[in-house]
């Protein structure tokens, strides 16, 4: 629900278990309670995409039978797997470019038992037009952090289980060049293009590749994007918003003529989903010009990275609670 400050305060004071996304000045005014939050001024509401500094996007987790919040840094972030309730779900919010977010992005896919408990979340951000810093909040203590992750672990009733899904509008052309990397990295100089060592920034420049398109890798039928943050012709480096991994084959995504139409087409297959939480990527919001456009049945914050177990880019992620 997309509500004003007074309505959000009321829900907190009523003891509701909440996930909140809003601009920093609003979050700073919230009373302590059973909530976590992250900063963003961008949202896709049921009425459409909007930039707002006077409303908050709030998810109430009505099915939760218990909860706890926790704060993590890079030294203990993967304790989320053991801190989670046996039958539950974890909401995880990390500030953009924070040490813990970078560490999580790189290491999560290698962590044992990561998939034993559903983890969903996002990377908090800020207003790109004014610049600022991303924050996360532990509502139980009322503390804001720019360098730590916060988690809301919820316990579910025995007859319910959490299920996480994604919506990715991108696909890869299997006839296109295969790009591989020799190590797990958020920044690279060289890669292998069809097996031949190549300076990746040169490859992008020479082939006039649209860097609004992500690299796409197949994870057992699930297409996972890695978005390009910057290309430096001078330093011959390419930086990513999520890591590339050795041993994975990547291809650049096919161009998308109309983001909103492509997303709408993808969403047709999800019309029966009843999400308790969803978020979509700032790059989809900007490149796809989603301002004013709704994405039913999904509404939520627009984020600087999405978490569905591991960090994703240019992807809509959602969680629903299903009967066992």
């Amino acid at each position: 629900m997309f509500i004003n400050l007074e309505e959000a305060k009321k829900l907190i004071l009523e003891g509701r278990i909440l996930h909140i996304a809003a601009e920093e000045s609003l979050l700073n005014q919230l009373p302590k309670g059973k909530w976590i939050a992250g900063t963003t001024p961008y949202f896709i509401t049921e009425q459409g995409g909007i930039t707002s500094k006077d409303k908050l996007f709030v998810n109430e987790i009505t099915d939760a039978v218990d909860f706890k919040t926790a704060v993590y840094d890079r030294s203990n972030i993967f304790d989320i797997t053991k801190d989670a309730f046996a039958n539950g779900m974890t909401f995880l919010v990390m500030p953009f470019a924070s040490d813990v977010a970078v560490f999580y992005a790189k290491e999560a896919p290698n962590v044992d038992d990561l998939f034993m408990n559903p983890v969903i979340g996002w990377i908090s951000g800020y207003d790109l037009s004014t610049g600022s810093s991303a924050k996360v909040y532990d509502g139980v203590t009322g503390t804001a952090y720019g360098d730590k992750a916060v988690a809301l672990h919820i316990s579910l009733p025995d007859n319910k289980t959490a299920s996480i899904g994604i919506v990715n509008i991108f696909s890869a052309d299997n006839d296109d060049a295969v790009i591989e990397f020799k190590e797990d990295a958020l920044s690279v100089t060289k890669c292998l293009v069809n097996g031949k060592e190549t300076v990746f920034s040169d490859y992008i420049t020479e082939n006039k590749i649209d860097t609004q398109l992500p690299l796409v890798a197949d994870y057992n039928g699930v297409l996972i994007n890695v978005s390009i943050k910057s290309v430096s012709k001078e330093n011959k480096t390419v930086d990513f918003y999520a890591p590339v991994f050795s041993g994975k084959e990547y291809r650049f995504a096919r161009p998308v003529d109309d983001y909103a139409a492509s997303l709408a087409e993808q969403l047709k297959g999800h019309k029966d989903v009843k999400p308790v939480f969803s978020c979509n990527c700032i790059l989809n919001y900007l490149y796809g010009n989603l301002d004013g456009k709704a994405t039913p049945p999904f509404a939520g914050p627009v984020t600087f990275g999405e978490i569905a177990y591991q960090l994703l880019n240019q992807t809509l992620v959602y969680a629903e609670l299903i009967d066992k």
Partner: peptide, 21 residues
């Protein structure tokens, strides 16, 4: 084997990579 369950697919992919290494 490809599932409709995201977690299972990501887990299979992770284990395949781990074993290949």
């Amino acid at each position: 084997y490809k599932s409709t369950n995201l977690g299972l697919n990501l887990l299979i992919s992770r284990l395949q990579r781990r074993y290949s290494l």
